[in-house]
Write a protein that binds this DNA or RNA. Structure first.
Lengths: 131, 131
DNA sequence: TGCTACATGAGAACCGTTCTCACCCGCTGC
DNA sequence: GCAGCGGGTGAGAACGGTTCTCATGTAGCA
């Protein structure tokens, strides 16, 4: 049985209020900053749960796991700003098909795929070029 | 100035002899196994160099960095067996174009992308289904 | 051959993550 | 409303991969 605790809610809320991808550590710090005395282990547990339930997306960057609230149930990918972490959900139907086809061509079964596009968002592009 | 040391050569060789992706730790162990007294730090340094010079590909899986020798200079992606690590180089021109287009649509500049397809290679598929 | 600066290696340090275990508290049945 | 159960929590330790430190080694140049 899964319980509803205020800690789990706090993590879900904090994640929902965040624009782009955040690390577990950053999320924990921001929760502490707003006065929520949530333990780091709990943040990790809650994020892992949200990710397995499909309520959050996760990706690994520079050895850190980053998380982001996402629309559950829909398979999609992200366009992520490598400077500020802002993310845009993108659908990638052509890529899905391509991945399946490539896997089949080489006799691979149960294909999964990791597809993420990184770049500089419009804002960070402006900041970078004016610098 | 970059020096040629036997340690660096040993790492490059060991990587070249490996079929799929290997972790730095595993590579270090196999070097030790063949009698090469190479330090772990040196293996990490050599792998990082090879990766930046384009002689090796790297990816992160389950918190570990995995490396693989690859044909330098050519941009490509991989079809990787999630059981045994065997990897096949695949070209993904349609995906390249798609990534550039998606980035441009959202005003993102300097697009990069991470595209990897995981699955079970024919051999591991057989083993899994016969089990 | 001698010099110099980069490379090496052992082990410590580091850092993100997971585990442990005692305590807490949300649910359920009464 | 109340008690009891069992999953959830939190502080800190443990863990595992990676990076750093610094004394020593050695490739490459003159």
């Amino acid at each position: 049985m899964k319980r509803n605790t205020w800690q789990r809610e706090a993590v879900r809320d904090a994640l929902g209020r965040t624009e782009g991808f955040v690390s577990a550590q950053a999320l924990h710090a921001s929760l502490r900053g707003t006065g929520s005395e949530v333990g780091l282990a709990t943040v990790y547990r809650a994020l892992a749960d949200l990710a397995t339930e499909g309520e959050a997306d996760s990706l690994v960057q520079e050895g850190e796991s980053l998380y982001r609230a996402c629309t559950p149930g829909s398979h999609h990918h992200h366009l992520i700003c490598r400077n500020c972490g802002t993310a845009v959900e993108i659908s990638a139907d052509p890529v899905e098909a391509w991945a399946r086809q490539v896997a089949a061509e080489h006799g691979f079964t149960e294909p999964n795929h990791v597809v993420d596009v990184f770049g500089l968002c419009p804002e960070c592009s402006r900041a970078a070029s004016s610098r």
